[in-house]
Amino acid sequence: MKHYEVEILDAKTREKLCFLDKVEPHATIAEIKNLFTKTHPQWYPARQSLRLDPKGKSLKDEDVLQKLPVGTTATLYFRDLGAQISWVTVFLTEYAGPLFIYLLFYFRVPFIYGHKYDFTSSRHTVVHLACICHSFHYIKRLLETLFVHRFSHGTMPLRNIFKNCTYYWGFAAWMAYYINHPLYTPPTYGAQQVKLALAIFVICQLGNFSIHMALRDLRPAGSKTRKIPYPTKNPFTWLFLLVSCPNYTYEVGSWIGFAIMTQCLPVALFSLVGFTQMTIWAKGKHRSYLKEFRDYPPLRMPIIPFLL
């Protein structure tokens, strides 16, 4: 059985960083990364991007050496992705923050609204209902991160945790300040508006959870398998008939419901920014589905049925 020789060059300087002799033909890129780490321990596998061309796409960890368009002496180019952190850690951090930050404003801890309001309670029912909904949303997200989601990528750049936390924590503080303010004004149409908004919120939260469970069942634990998601017997998953990412559709719907319930401008802005970002993600995933699966359902749109 022939063996391969693998040289790894710096993608920027073309400097030879490592030479691997007698590499098995069936070795994966993940195994080559581990061998590279032995000579350069500062670059652990998650930091490494190996590619066939200095400006090309990163090879997948599961790619097999003998199936790549290389000879028995293969040249790979290395790029440092920077310090990495696990997706689970990032999600837990960015979701735990809003949960606790919101509660600080809800309980009106000292130095927020003035001494005479310390630890007082709002007289408006919608304020307490909003706290329950907000807390439920982020507790749900935390539990899904721990027990439901299966991540195709193990890590992301460390800098992302600061960007994500600034976004989630900042908006949580902004909306919580106004919703729990002693001078907060309840919704214009009173109980009817709150009940309608609560119904929207609850339905969308159930829908979002149902989609996450359906997506989880598509991917076996520990794998990166991708399949076309289809509706199940659960009615909340029937939205798969019309959109590629109904989890985002339901998520946006939840925040629209919360915005109607609280009639709070920061919540509306958070919903708008979230919708914009999720639309970008949904379009990317939709394109990926179309590219990977020739039999992908043609009627589906990325996030909004028939429109977007």
Rank of each mutant, 00 (worst) to 15 (best):
T276A: 11
I303H: 01
P235S: 06
C18S: 08
K55D: 00
L76I: 00
K55M: 12
G170M: 04
F36N: 13
R14E: 10
V202L: 09
T166R: 00
K16V: 04
L143Q: 11
P229T: 06
S288I: 09
C131I: 01
D21C: 08
H128Y: 06
D21A: 13
G154P: 06
T39K: 12
G154Q: 08
A27G: 06
F91M: 04
I280L: 13
F236G: 01
S86L: 00
P187G: 14
P98G: 07
S244H: 15
P235E: 01
V23G: 09
A268E: 02
Q193C: 02
Q84P: 11
P54G: 11
L290H: 00
F236N: 14
Y168D: 00
F107V: 07
A11F: 09
W281L: 05
Q66P: 08
P298L: 07
H26D: 11
F78A: 03
K233D: 15
Y167D: 04
Y117S: 13
N34I: 01
Q193G: 12
F201G: 00
A172I: 14
T73Q: 01
R108K: 01
G56V: 04
Y44K: 08
K57R: 12
K12Y: 03
P305S: 03
K60V: 00
R51I: 14
W174M: 04
L92N: 15
R51F: 03
A173V: 09
R294L: 08
K116V: 14
T145K: 06
E62D: 07
E5I: 14
F151C: 01
P69N: 12
K12S: 01
A96V: 09
V88W: 08
N34S: 11
Y296D: 03
F162T: 06
K2M: 05
R108L: 05
C18K: 01
H149V: 04
I29Q: 07
W87Q: 15
Q192W: 15
T13F: 06
L59Q: 05
F151V: 07
N234C: 15
L35W: 05
V109F: 02
V267E: 06
L99G: 04
T28W: 06
F36K: 01
E5P: 00
R123T: 02
S86W: 14
I211P: 04
I256M: 10
M175G: 01
Q48I: 01
P110N: 15
F100H: 01
D118H: 03
W43K: 14
A172G: 04
L65I: 06
E7P: 00
Y106D: 03
R141S: 01
F119L: 11
P45R: 08
F270D: 01
C204L: 01
P54W: 07
T39I: 05
S152D: 02
Y102E: 06
Y248H: 08
R51C: 12
Q66F: 11
K2Q: 04
H134W: 04
G170P: 05
L129P: 05
T166G: 09
E15A: 05
L9M: 04
C131P: 14
K33R: 09
D61G: 11
G222P: 00
C264V: 00
S58D: 13
D217N: 08
A30K: 14
S135R: 02
G190L: 06
I200W: 11
T75D: 14
K224D: 12
K163G: 05
D21I: 04
I32G: 13
P266Q: 04
R159I: 15
H26R: 11
P25A: 01
G190E: 11
T73P: 02
P302K: 12
R123P: 06
T120K: 06
